[in-house]
Design a binder for these strands. Structure first.
Lengths: 250, 250
DNA sequence: CGATCGCTTGAGCAAAATCAAACCTCGTGG
DNA sequence: CCACGAGGTTTGATTTTGCTCAAGCGATCG
């Protein structure tokens, strides 16, 4: 089955055995199992750990005083949150599991020791950080400019590609344990409207989404509707070609 | 008048003379003057420089195929764009001046030499990066959950505080050379609606905004309306107290 | 002095929110 | 084994927010 963190970072550069072993140690030493909806990090806390998502699905979120909630990022297996966050005094957002989720909570010292020892790993982690920044920018574009239907299509394209990059897709299917309320909080639309939007995508034969399983029946058409441009995922190396192939309409 | 980049970084930690001198050199060696609306970086290009904004105002933006444009970040004097971006093969967004703007375009090698020599500066630059990530997350929350009026109020609070952090405010006034169209593209609302939104804020006596000058007449009330929580700006050290004071309603 | 750019206003319209209720599926306990 | 309840999904009716279209206004600049 392998380690999703290693699979993810190898999209940036191939790792040697020592680097893989070091990562592998991290991801076995500090494992914590989270129940669905369980919080991992709370806004206001001082940052303590670098969190690696091994399995399941988690999110970053922010809340307004009046209870409105916005999911600002999803984490899928292989994702690494906040490589340098200890610099800050207090977290400005929270992190929670969405489904049953396994994470590794790596203490600051341990993480710093790793990057001191492996400069190439440091570069790979930088790449990971830059990709997450790019995703945040794409979300701003997505929520700011696209219609609800386009937004949904774009998010589904993104998540499908990200899961594919860590081998978590099976053909056109992948596990995506989000509720319609989660999707609404990520896209800035109401749950009711999420429902109607999904119905439209289903009716067009583009996707099916039921019981936590997403199937993308026509990725080129979905990407087209979404004006999805995968450049922001920075899947360089071989993968870029794979992406182009997947999205090709003809 | 001093150097806004130094002023900005000193919000994180005090710099010694050698560090300031090194930064000062950077910001005099590679200066480029941009006309209003002139592009500095284009999506698709390989990254070449670290850009420091010395004066004026710039933005990051992304475009959709059909021409819709979203501003995903504003840069005010002292801001530093993309400290580690050379790792990526191609930019996923563009950067443009908004007003007449002076930037320093620091070549990669030169920038790396700086951080190798001054570890404390590296930390300060990390802090800067983390703050910009946090701002991006806040924008997702802003656009996703807040109404047009709240959004506008929030953005104006943010910009006012950021300008204040580099001493670019004069009492309750500051230069903010944005058009209503710019505000609309940043907030994901139409220009017409920006206009009506500003009128409401003016009518409430909260702000005035004319000829590129913003005046915030009642920051506590504006912050209250916006549900503005300055924690995401991570103005640690003395400044945090200053913020609290400014926002105090009583 | 006309052209352009940015701001303003009004009217009608469309997208998405809200409210309310029903329905479905599963797990749990009587 | 079945009833019950909770969480999630679906539907319909109504309202709200913000968009679009269209036109006019007011500076500023060559």
């Amino acid at each position: 089955m392998g380690n999703p963190v290693i699979r993810r970072l190898e999209h940036f550069l191939p790792l040697d055995e020592a680097e893989k072993a070091a990562l592998s140690d991290l991801t076995t030493d500090y494992v914590r199992e989270l129940a669905p909806r369980e919080d991992l990090v709370l806004e206001g806390e001082p940052p303590r750990y670098v969190n690696l998502v091994l399995d399941g699905c988690a999110c970053r979120y922010k809340m307004l005083e009046d209870g409105r909630r916005q999911i600002v990022a999803f984490f899928v297996p292989g994702d690494l949150c906040d490589a340098r966050v200890f610099i800050l005094k207090a977290m400005d957002h929270s992190i929670a599991a969405i489904a049953q989720t396994r994470v590794a909570q790596v203490p600051a010292e341990r993480f710093i020791a790793l990057t001191d020892r492996f400069p190439r790993l440091t570069r790979a982690l930088w790449w990971n950080t830059l990709v997450h920044e790019a995703i945040a920018r794409e979300w701003i574009l997505n929520i700011g400019q696209r219609s609800a239907l386009e937004r949904m299509a774009n998010l589904l394209c993104e998540l499908f590609m990200r899961l594919r990059a860590v081998d978590m897709t099976r053909g056109e299917a992948c596990d995506l344990p989000l509720t319609q309320a989660d999707l609404g909080e990520a896209l800035g639309i109401s749950t009711v409207h999420v429902n109607r939007t999904l119905q439209t995508l289903r009716a067009e034969g583009l996707i099916s989404f039921k019981g936590g399983v997403l199937e993308v029946h026509d990725l080129p058409a979905l990407a087209d509707l979404a004006m999805f441009n995968p450049n922001y995922l920075h899947l360089e190396r071989g993968e870029a070609a794979g992406v182009a192939r997947l999205l090709a309409t003809t």
